[in-house]
Design a protein around this nucleic acid. Structure first.
Lengths: 339, 339
DNA sequence: TCGGTCATTGTTCACGTGTGCATGCCTATG
DNA sequence: CATAGGCATGCACACGTGAACAATGACCGA
């Protein structure tokens, strides 16, 4: 099996204490001794036993990234970008453990001994129970993607509200007055944020919000398709539709095309996220780019700072989202706004 | 901090050994004693210290899922489906640690003490060095997505070759004779498998393979677009194009549309993977459904069997891929096959 | 009643690492 | 020369858990 510090100690003719100190850079060790020990360690391919270290330090050396769910509701591109970003920052200083919050039957498995820190990719308020658990267990954590808790909790969000506001304003600027929204999962915080950005923009333009211009969706392709069918069946059809993510927008696009409605000539359509596909469908989607990978990277950096006792920003950090205008939105071709 | 078995022992008036045995279901313990101990444990919210357990057992309780890379070349839907499948099987019996092979500067960090088992989502032969390392370290592992090693190594693959064969045959059956291929990353094993399926089908139909009908790509949207531009610029344009994944097919679709070429009337186009978007773009993509999540689930099951000493299948297990015919492929409209 | 057996529990050590305290050596200083 | 002090190292224990072995007591058959 693999070598231990005791093996090294024996070969070097010193005690295991000396070896431990030498390898950990203690200033107490004579340079020559250290040199010798390091060489022997190299030679034996010594790798410290994480479990033993964890035991003595009371730290597990692993960090969890928790998603509300690993299944439906978490889009692939979002999941990928998140894990990639965090993984890049943590490198191999910590084990990155991926889990879905809804997979836990009992949060008690999540303890400070098992997770040194946690990144919570939180979509819904339902996750608050999990966050409370983390707090009780005194596990340092950063909430990503959702404004959560008070000033004491660090969270990193991307400008959902601002993005939705800018997008809606863009549509209004194009002359649209009948602007519908294809909603995401209603429990998700991002859904509410985007909704309020949409509403604020309407209000700022003196437009009222119409109940029938909201269609429910689930952030996936199928629900985008179905929701669009419902909107198209309305007696007074909207001239623009804001889909709360790109997946739904692609679904909506299909529904529109099948109904013989041209985008953007007959109807403007916009998405959210800029998930990669949005630039490639036809017409390319106007959308809002959300800096997901940056968000997860920043979250990981903040968590590291917390773990290492460095000063870490509390409260909410908001990374700006950016309106990306492409071909799926155009000037309103409707006969005035008389309605 | 959290309670230990010693705390419980003291409260129960027994030795810590008795507590350990009671909680681990040893038959040596008197039912009444066990009852009492379990109750106290509940009361104290006892959770076993994983590090201590790991140390004494020499097992880390974590399993790694390693991707060739977490960055480019690994599509989001593939990544998501893989992690989800494995996570679902492992539940909370193990920590699932996600890493990119190319992120390691030194494989020595991957040892049997740190990873009890490994799932390798391998794309390229370059990963063989990593696999050899796992073998040397005697870390049980299962290779997913790629046929690797000899009979002694377990690997689970999805029918890349068979799928590509079926797809190409489908195109030939529609009357196509000039069938081009838009290749994925050339180092990837899946690329070679799909290529050979394509070639075999051509050969079986008595068709020769033309050098100029191969365009290089990288499994992403942009390279699909660029590759298609090159194919369209050929003096004798192909009547059908097999794209090695759906991402590239979507990129290719955009290029075709911009060139004023109608799919499938002027040109048939097919993808691979059935990544979810393929059914929703216009026209919906003919593709091959790869059972990625099943593959990862099966891999996890096999690994669990290996770890628990149960009989596990060695060698390669191949899960069938399924041809899905949609609207992007149609009968060849070219003036005979005279060329 | 005594030896033996079984059921139940306790004692002690091990896993690999890190740390407080003791120890020994060398040197400088009075 | 004696002593103090700094440097380098070793000893012993702790972390929480599990297991081999020992020990205790009850019960049974002879």
């Amino acid at each position: 099996m693999s070598a231990t510090i005791k093996d090294i100690a024996q070969l070097a003719g010193v005690s295991h204490t000396t070896v431990s100190r030498a390898l950990n850079g203690s200033p107490l060790i004579h340079p020559a001794t250290r040199e010798r020990i390091v060489q022997i360690a190299e030679q034996l391919h010594y790798t410290p036993n994480r479990s033993a270290r964890s035991l003595v330090h009371g730290r597990s050396n692993s960090i969890g990234i928790f998603f509300s769910t690993l299944g439906e509701g978490t889009s692939s591109s979002f999941f990928h970008a998140s894990v990639r970003g965090v993984s890049r920052v943590l490198q191999d200083r910590y084990n990155l453990v991926v889990r879905g919050i809804d997979d836990y039957a009992d949060y008690r498995e999540v303890g400070p001994k098992r997770f040194e820190g946690a990144l919570v990719m939180s979509q819904q308020d339902r996750d608050d129970a999990f966050l409370r658990h983390l707090q009780e267990q005194q596990i340092p954590h950063v909430v990503l993607n959702r404004r959560a808790g008070g000033e004491e909790m660090a969270s990193i969000v991307a400008g959902d509200r601002e993005g939705a506001f800018a997008l809606t304003k863009h549509l209004i600027g194009l002359g649209h007055r009948r602007i519908a929204v294809l909603e995401g999962v209603s429990g998700f915080r991002a859904t509410r944020e985007r909704m309020s950005g949409y509403e604020d923009a309407l209000r700022a333009a003196g437009l009222g919000r119409r109940r029938d211009y909201t269609a429910a969706g689930r952030y996936d392709l199928a629900s985008g398709y179905e929701g669009m069918l419902r909107l198209l069946a309305l007696p007074e059809r909207p001239t623009a539709v804001f889909c709360m993510n790109d997946e739904m927008a692609v679904g909506a696009l299909k529904a529109a095309r099948e109904a013989g409605i041209s985008v953007p000539d007959d109807l403007s359509l916009a998405g959210f996220d800029d998930n990669g596909f949005s630039a490639y469908v036809t017409p390319p989607l106007t959308t809002v780019r959300r800096p997901i990978e940056e968000m997860s990277r920043e979250g990981a950096r903040v968590l590291l700072a917390m773990l290492e006792g460095r000063p870490a920003p509390a409260g909410t950090t908001c990374l700006p989202a950016e309106l990306v205008v492409r071909g799926s939105t155009g000037p309103c071709g409707c006969r005035s706004s008389a309605g």
